[in-house]
């Protein structure tokens, strides 16, 4: 039993960075192509300082460059869901029906009323857990609110 626990602990330490992997290999593709695609759900956000900081942080972490894609709103989120886009950025209500359709990062900034807060956040394709974790780390690095989540 003791040995088993020790082996488990070693595996855990060794595996901490090996897991998770992406079912559709988003992280690997980004690493080898040195590019990731980004879209803005809300085009007004083009000049938002937080989003620029987030993109810079992800670029540093991955060594890849962001490629901006045209489009907005649900069309963009649908592309994200289908795996045609790596990252979507925008303001989403906490009750948004997209919460289960795509994976959402921690909120960078919250606005709106207390009952129905609107959160500025990144959205990724569901299940691409390594890529999701990269964006979550970047979100926490640039926003105190994301860190507090």
């Amino acid at each position: 039993m003791k040995q088993l626990a020790l082996i488990g602990l070693l595996l855990l330490l060794a595996g901490c960075d090996a897991l998770p992997r992406d079912p559709a290999d988003t992280s690997k593709r980004i690493e080898s192509s040195r590019r990731f695609s980004v879209g803005l759900v809300d085009p007004d956000l083009r000049t938002d300082a937080r989003l620029s900081a987030l993109i810079r942080n992800i670029e540093q972490r991955t060594g890849a460059r962001a490629e901006w894609r045209p489009g907005s709103g649900e069309a963009l989120l649908t592309q994200l869901k289908a795996g045609e886009l790596d990252l979507a950025l925008g303001r989403l209500s906490r009750e948004s029906p997209w919460t289960s359709e795509v994976a959402l990062g921690p909120p960078l900034e919250t606005s709106g009323s207390r009952e129905e807060p609107i959160e500025l956040k990144a959205a990724m394709r569901n299940g691409e857990n390594r890529w999701i974790m990269t964006v979550e780390r970047a979100s926490r690095a640039i926003s105190a609110e994301a860190r507090a989540q």
Binding site: C16, N126, M133, E136
Partner: peptide, 20 residues
């Protein structure tokens, strides 16, 4: 073919995959 999302959380300043 639903892909389950399992993200990370921060424990003692470390980002840890929730799967662990």
């Amino acid at each position: 073919a639903e892909h389950a999302t399992v993200g990370s959380i921060v424990i003692l300043g470390q980002d840890i995959w929730l799967g662990w």
